[in-house]
């Protein structure tokens, strides 16, 4: 029995050590990071203090990303909010050799083709920022307010599917959350389970 508990304890300690890095929390300060953008410049989250920031994890080959790009849903959201002075950061955490990994040139070409207009494309092929934010899927959306607090993390909308026909039926969490925030209201669902493809991390 004692030996048994010892084994369990080991398993438990392992479980605890794995779950320690719970460092992003809604309504808490969003952790700062630095990544290189499509022009080769370093972009820091803290550069955008005073503005709303959207983080969008993406992978152009993921069917769930394609659902929202090919339908025009994601590009529309990008243009709607960047016009309202929101900083939209598209983050690509696909590691080299994995699905969705692209260089700056390809990424810009893709955005041009898809009429996408994020403020910057950020390359995170080491996956450090993705793991810092615990980005699980593409798409996985985050909203940070002008004070630098994380206000929303989760799915883009309420229907988990790869079917573009579901977009109109769904509640677009990103859209309603940003609208509420900018109107000074509380967000109804601050944290939702994201859906989509797994982020193709290096490890």
């Amino acid at each position: 029995m004692v030996k048994h508990s010892a084994i369990l304890t080991v398993i438990l300690s392992l479980a605890l050590s794995l779950s320690v890095h719970a460092n992003v929390k809604v309504d808490q300060p969003a952790p700062d990071f630095e990544l290189v953008n499509e022009a080769g410049n370093t972009v820091k989250l803290s550069d955008y203090q005073g503005k709303y920031v959207v983080l969008e994890w993406t992978n152009h080959l993921c069917p769930y990303v394609q659902k929202h790009y090919d339908s025009g849903n994601m590009p529309q959201l990008q243009s709607k909010y960047t016009q309202k002075d929101v900083i939209w950061l598209q983050v690509i955490s696909s590691a080299e050799g994995k699905q969705g990994h692209v260089d700056a040139e390809k990424a810009m070409a893709l955005n041009a083709e898809r009429k996408a207009s994020p403020t910057h494309i950020l390359f995170d092929s080491e996956g450090e920022v993705g793991k810092l934010y615990r980005a699980k899927t593409t798409p996985h959306m985050y909203i940070i307010n002008p004070e630098g607090d994380l206000k929303y993390a989760g799915a883009i909308d309420s229907i988990k599917s790869a079917n573009p026909a579901d977009i109109d039926k769904a509640t677009n969490y990103l859209d309603v959350s940003l609208t509420s925030l900018m109107a000074g209201e509380e967000i109804e669902n601050k944290l939702t389970a994201p859906y989509g493809c797994s982020v193709k991390y290096k490890s």
């Binding site: 993921c62 069917p63 994995k98 699905q99 599917s161 790869a162 079917n163 493809c197 193709k200």
Partner: peptide, 12 residues
């Protein structure tokens, strides 16, 4: 019917 089939990458 709709489905998703995956290895590491997924195809609906």
């Amino acid at each position: 019917l709709s489905w998703l089939v995956c290895k590491e990458d997924c195809i609906p």
